[in-house]
C-alpha cells in the first residue's frame, strides 16, 4: 500500500499529491513516470514523477481529473493509500545524459500547456540546480488553470505566460509566442522541450521544424503495463513502431506521427464514457471505493 501523505487541490480538478513510495523515490530521475492503480478494480494509470523527497521517501504526482480513473484517484484523501504504485518507468530525460558544460552554452526553451507544467517542472528544476536557467512559455485555458506558476517563474530566465481567455498573461497560443520570439525578436534557441496536450505539441513541432530547432516531446499515449509487455502505447517515430513506455516517453518531436497518436487516444472513447456514466450514477459505490 502506498500512503497519501499530502493532498492539495491546486487548480480546478487538478491535484497535487505526495505519495509514500521510498523505493521509487530513491531511483526516480526527471523524465520518469509511475503506474498507479488506486484499488483492486482500478485501471493502471501513467503519471509523471514531478518531484521526490528521498528523506521522506515520497514521490510527488500532479494530475488532472479528466475521466473515470483520474476521478477515482482524486477521490482518495490524505492518510488513504493507493493499492499499487510502480516505478520509476520510462527513460530519464535526455538532458541528463548531456555534457553539463555543453548544456550551459545552449539556449533552451520549455513550452508547457495545462497539466504539462507538472512534467516539465522536474527538468527545469534539475537545470536550475545545475546553474542553467531556461526560457519558459507556460500556457493554460485560464488563470485558474496555470499551475506551478511561481515555482517555475523563479527558475526561468525569460518567462512568458499565455491563457486562452486572456485572464492572465497574453491572450494567445503558446505557438504564437514562440513564433514572435523567433521571428520578431530574432531569438535563437538550440533546443525546445514541450509537454502538454498532443495537439499543442504537434503545432509547436510544426513551428520549430520551420525554424529548424531541435524539439523534444513527451508522449502521453494510452498505456496498460508501462513496462514493455503489451504494446498498447505504440507510436510511429520516424516510420518505425516504438513503445512509448520503454523507448520513450521522450522523442524527437519532428519524427513523431501525432495524428496516429491522436487517433489512438480515442480507441476506448465509448467505454470510457460508459465508465464515467456508471460512476456518476452509482455515487455510493464510487464513494465506497475511495478509501
Amino acid at each position: 500500500m502506498y500512503k497519501i501523505l499530502t493532498k492539495k487541490n491546486i487548480a480546478p480538478e487538478t491535484f497535487y499529491m505526495e505519495i509514500e513510495a521510498p523505493k521509487v523515490a530513491k531511483s526516480a530521475k526527471p523524465g520518469h513516470f509511475i503506474m498507479v492503480k488506486a484499488d483492486e478494480q482500478a485501471e493502471r494509470i501513467p503519471l509523471t514523477v514531478c518531484d521526490v523527497d528521498t528523506k521522506k521517501g515520497s514521490v510527488t504526482i500532479i494530475f488532472k481529473a479528466v475521466g473515470a480513473s483520474t476521478e477515482l484517484l482524486a477521490g482518495f484523501d490524505e492518510g488513504d493509500s493507493y493499492l499499487d504504485f510502480a516505478g520509476p518507468l520510462g527513460n530519464e530525460t535526455e538532458l541528463l545524459s548531456e555534457d553539463l558544460e555543453d548544456l550551459k552554452t545552449k539556449k533552451i526553451m520549455f513550452i508547457a500547456g495545462g497539466i504539462g507544467a507538472a512534467p516539465v517542472h522536474p527538468q527545469i528544476k534539475w537545470l536550475y540546480e545545475n546553474g542553467i536557467k531556461p526560457d519558459v512559455i507556460l500556457g493554460a485555458r485560464s488563470k485558474d488553470n496555470l499551475i506551478l506558476l511561481s515555482e517555475i517563474e523563479k527558475m526561468a530566465d525569460n518567462f512568458y505566460t499565455v491563457t486562452d481567455d486572456g485572464s492572465y498573461g497574453r491572450k494567445a497560443l503558446v505557438t504564437e509566442v514562440l513564433e514572435d520570439l523567433i521571428v520578431k525578436e530574432k531569438k535563437h534557441y538550440d533546443l525546445v522541450i514541450t509537454i502538454g496536450p498532443l495537439l499543442m505539441m504537434k503545432f509547436v513541432c510544426l513551428v520549430t521544424k520551420k525554424h529548424d530547432v531541435k524539439t523534444i516531446v513527451s508522449l502521453n499515449t494510452l498505456m496498460v503495463c508501462g513496462m514493455g509487455m503489451c504494446g498498447a502505447c505504440r507510436a510511429t517515430i520516424n516510420n518505425e513502431t516504438k513503445f512509448t513506455c520503454v523507448d520513450g516517453p521522450e522523442f524527437d518531436g519532428h519524427q513523431v506521427d501525432f495524428d496516429e497518436i491522436l487517433n489512438r487516444q480515442s480507441i476506448y472513447k465509448d467505454e470510457e464514457k460508459e465508465k464515467l456514466y456508471q460512476f456518476a450514477h452509482s455515487e455510493q459505490e464510487f464513494k465506497n471505493r475511495r478509501k
Binding site: 523505493k23 499499487d84 504504485f85 520509476p88 518507468l89 513496462m227
Partner: peptide, 9 residues
C-alpha cells in the same frame, strides 16, 4: 510486487 528490476532496483 511493483518492483521493476533494472528500474526500481
Amino acid at each position: 510486487t511493483n518492483i521493476i528490476i533494472g528500474k526500481t532496483i
